[in-house]
Amino acid sequence: MNEMFRDKIDISLTVNGEPVEGRVPAGQHLVDFLRGALGLTGAHASCEHGVCGACTIKVNGEAVRGCLMLAAQADGADIWTVEGLSDQGTIKDLQDAFVARNALQCGFCTPGMLVAIDELLGKEGVPSRAEIREHLSGNYCRCTGYEAIVDAVETVARARAQKGAA
């Protein structure tokens, strides 16, 4: 149409602490870029209309729907996925709690769930079960019935609070 608009966009960003460059189609969402171009298959594309939460990733410190952000918009961003968070060890207690409580079955929702929970646990205080449920209300899990996930979050929130208080 005209020179202002590009159908391929060059982006340069940081993913899981590593510098990354790419040339992305204008309409490509961020999760397809992470999965396809970078091989970071931890975040999943499921509904691709922002409802299921399987694609939740961390962008500039906040939990974001990876399917509702264009890769082109991620130029300059600092992005973390479950792979990076795992390597970094910052959610190890949460991952351990998920395994111990069997807060996952098929595991497809889990990476997005963990990123969403990470944001909640970053806030002050120990959330109530109702607050945990409310915070996770945008992350669909067909397998667990949610209770085990709520239990795992509650366990970690309490443990962290105790550790902080000690």
Binding site: M1, N2, M4, F5, A26, G27, Q28, E48, A72
Partner: peptide, 26 residues
């Protein structure tokens, strides 16, 4: 489904955005 965009441009200022909008022919 996968989105199909005609093109993308990032505005650096409101003026910039308004000029892009004008140039996009609706």
């Amino acid at each position: 489904m996968k989105a199909s965009a005609g093109g993308y441009a990032r505005a650096s200022s409101l003026r910039d955005a308004l000029e892009m909008l004008a140039a996009s022919d609706g």
